[in-house]
């Protein structure tokens, strides 16, 4: 005889489900529905003024290859991501390494290194805009006082993206520093003592003990910083307005311009799906590479 089917919805379970209702309602309306509707919009051409909507198939997706500004923004984004992720994480690691040694004043240093992380990009942006100012900015004043020529930080296309990256590292490196620090303090001390007995110097301990044991920490920080870097917008928006000559014009900037300045909703939606695909692809490859090697100890 087949077992009698248990009822899925009893009174008690229905009451329990009420706990989930407020969040799931929000989640459905503001996450799931937009993700689906966005995909639909990306297949249309829609004028928000006249309300006319046409189905255009994949045309929006194909259009990107003829869009010079898209290609430009893609190149800028890749450049920004590579530099900011590598330099930013190197800087975070350096700070974490010093703190992990347990030097005196550790808490003071940690507080100062982390403090910029809590600031709004609105604050960071206007303050750095002033620091970078060509005529009255502090950075050029310093360069001049040590006999170097002034740099047109924000008005020279070759320097503009570098300026954005320096600001981003100042503002954000403290975050990954904390994660690296926690990872380093988690490595069992005995392993270092054993390595020392085997005659390993500080550098060898770092290469053969710390890095392999922190594999997942690295995978996490690098993945999360890459995801964030691909979405960069606020920093160039405030500091340079995407210029000069589109030197700091990024993918999300392109989505913003198309969606909210030119109101090409369909095209902007297609661009944002391409961004998601790009991020998934890069992160998948990166994560596989970073976690490939096995640690044996």
């Amino acid at each position: 005889m087949p077992e009698p089917r248990r009822r899925v919805w009893t009174r008690a379970r229905a009451l329990n489900a009420l706990f989930l209702v407020p969040y799931l309602a929000l989640f459905l309306v503001w996450v799931i529905a937009p993700a689906i509707v966005g995909l639909g919009l990306s297949l249309t051409e829609w004028s928000i003024f006249t309300g006319e909507m046409h189905f255009v198939g994949l045309r929006n997706y194909l259009r990107v290859f003829q869009d010079d500004l898209f290609l430009r923004s893609l190149a800028n984004t890749l450049y920004y991501t590579a530099l900011s992720v590598i330099l930013g994480n190197a800087f975070s690691l350096l700070m974490a390494y010093g703190l992990a040694r347990g030097i005196r004043g550790k808490l003071v240093f940690q507080t100062i290194f982390f403090a910029p992380v809590v600031l709004s990009i609105g604050v960071t942006g206007v303050v750095w805009g002033w620091l970078y100012n060509g005529d009255f900015g502090l950075l050029n004043y310093w360069l001049e006082s040590i006999g170097l020529p002034r740099v047109h930080w924000l008005s020279n296309p070759r320097w503009a993206m570098i300026s954005v990256i320096i600001m981003v590292i100042w503002a954000g490196a403290g975050f990954n520093m904390m994660i690296y620090l926690a990872g380093m303090l988690n490595v069992p001390r005995g392993l270092y003592e054993a390595a020392q007995l085997d005659g390993a110097n500080a550098w060898q301990q770092w290469i053969y003990v710390t890095i392999p044991l922190m594999k997942y920490t690295f995978a996490f920080t690098l993945t999360v910083s890459t995801i964030g870097a691909f979405q960069v917008f606020d920093q160039p928006y405030i500091l340079t307005g995407g210029g000069p000559d589109y030197a700091t014009y990024t993918l999300v900037y392109h989505i913003y311009s198309n969606g909210f300045r030119y109101f090409r909703i369909g095209y902007a939606a297609a661009l944002s799906y391409l961004l998601a695909l790009l991020i998934f692809g890069v992160v998948y490859v990166q994560y596989r590479l970073l976690t490939r090697t096995n640690v044996e100890y």
Partner: peptide, 25 residues
Amino acid sequence: LFMLVIASMMIPFPTTLIPVYVFLQ
């Protein structure tokens, strides 16, 4: 349901920006 909520953390913020804006409008 929980898996769905967690998986949604993978969606980049700018991706839903356009449709969410349309909703708000």
